[in-house]
């Protein structure tokens, strides 16, 4: 037994870089599968309501705006969202999912109602998985810009 066996380790740390990051100024990249906040590609949504049914926090709300025009409004209550990404898993649209997660993690707000996000859109027709890939791709990219 010897006293102060930690001392060599302690001295070694005097010459090491800090283990922490200079956070607000330097940002660490989020991992590949990070689950941020869910958002919708409105032109892809077929209003199957699978996300609304499976959401454990009941944060997704789909309401009908105009029955005749088939217009719907989806509201995501981000104050209730637990960021589990089950909505993305449940979404049946292929090949691009209508629900997606972004990588934002600094999402605090002063008022919980500011966190609410909604989209109003005409229901998309369910497409056959084989026929769609070419026309869907550019639409998805524009949706990311407008949704973010």
């Amino acid at each position: 037994m010897k006293i102060a066996a930690f001392l060599p380790e302690l001295f070694r740390h005097l010459f090491k870089k800090p283990a922490t990051l200079d956070y607000p100024f330097k940002k660490i990249a989020v991992p590949k599968d990070f689950r941020g906040t869910p958002f919708l590609h409105p032109e892809l949504c077929i209003v199957c309501k699978a996300c609304e049914r499976d959401c454990p926090a009941e944060a997704i709300e789909i309401t009908s705006v105009n029955e005749a025009e088939k217009r719907f409004r989806m509201t995501i209550h981000n104050d209730r969202c637990i960021h589990c990404a089950q909505c993305v898993d449940s979404c049946p649209t292929t090949p691009v999912k209508a629900m997606e997660m972004d990588t934002l993690h600094e999402i605090a707000a002063f008022d919980r109602h500011d966190l609410k996000k909604s989209w109003e859109y005409v229901r998309a027709l369910p497409k056959r998985p084989v026929a769609t890939p070419a026309p869907v791709k550019p639409a998805a990219e524009t949706a990311v810009k407008s949704g973010a």
């Binding site: 991992p31 590949k32 990070f34 990404a85």
Partner: peptide, 21 residues
């Protein structure tokens, strides 16, 4: 754990019938 599942505390890796990542 964060690299495997995406998040640090609630990994949410389980699903009925397997894993998600």
């Amino acid at each position: 754990l964060e690299m495997i599942s995406g998040n640090r505390v609630h990994y949410a890796i389980n699903t009925l019938g397997g894993v998600r990542r």
